[in-house]
Design a protein around this nucleic acid. Sequence first.
DNA 1: TATTGTTATACTCTATAACTATA
DNA 2: TATAGTTATAGAGTATAACAATA
Lengths: 150, 150
Amino acid sequence: MDITVAESRTLARTLVKTAEAAKHAFNRAAQSCGLPLHLARAVLLLEKPMSMRHIAAELACDPSHVTGIADQLARRGLAERVPGADRRTRLVQLTDSGEETRDRLAAQVAAGPMFGATLTAAQRRQLLELLEEVLAATPAAEDLHPRTAD
Amino acid sequence: MDITVAESRTLARTLVKTAEAAKHAFNRAAQSCGLPLHLARAVLLLEKPMSMRHIAAELACDPSHVTGIADQLARRGLAERVPGADRRTRLVQLTDSGEETRDRLAAQVAAGPMFGATLTAAQRRQLLELLEEVLAATPAAEDLHPRTAD
DNA sequence: TATTGTTATACTCTATAACTATA
DNA sequence: TATAGTTATAGAGTATAACAATA
């Protein structure tokens, strides 16, 4: 607990900046596959057909938002809606073209300049362990939507 | 470079999640001081009077946005505009109340559950080094605003 | 009555452009 | 002509609420 204010801020800022750099690297990979960020995230997620609600949960967004994502994927010929077990539910399933795009994107992400080219395997393991330790000790983010009158 | 797709994604996801947890921890500290996120960031920044443009650069936002921030800080009695060297420039300066809030917030952030209570000093140093190494190797994020027709 | 997906709407955040005043 | 700050407007992204079909 004998951490200084300055050290805490430096650590937090560096952490956030690195995460932003990771997002940008992902964004570049997505663009090189011709996809905007949110579609790239969805494509990478769809290892198998998934219900809209499941996708929304995974992407941490509102289910209503997934409708638009599925529409855009469909318009690009990357995915289609197929019936689910329940006749209410519809699954989003990648087409052949979509699977090819997903695999290409995954390869791009892995080959990106973020981790592979920088850290040794031991360093990557170390980094992951440290991050997980911090994460485990952090109380889950309950309310994401504080309202402040201003 | 012999990093697997799975490892790269795990690392990236954990990194982003940890950064989000850090943001939430900061947000909680801010709320406990009665401040929304963007005002808390500004208050913490104002160690000394700063021009609007300088604040905008530090917060990585458009200068026009700083007008609103300064207004809101003023309305809460936390800061006021004072004339700068140039008669065009105006500096934002914390009031006594603002400085007190800033110090309280800084203490809250440092005492937060993120790093101090979790990692040893050696681990914190290690984490910072690893993050900086990744950050240094990452090409700067040039264009933040990709446009995609959809 | 509860749940899935859809639609329509509203809200938040932030950038862009036009404007005033200084330089 | 260029710069600091302000104002007004517009856009992207996302949530909320009402709705239809199904369970």
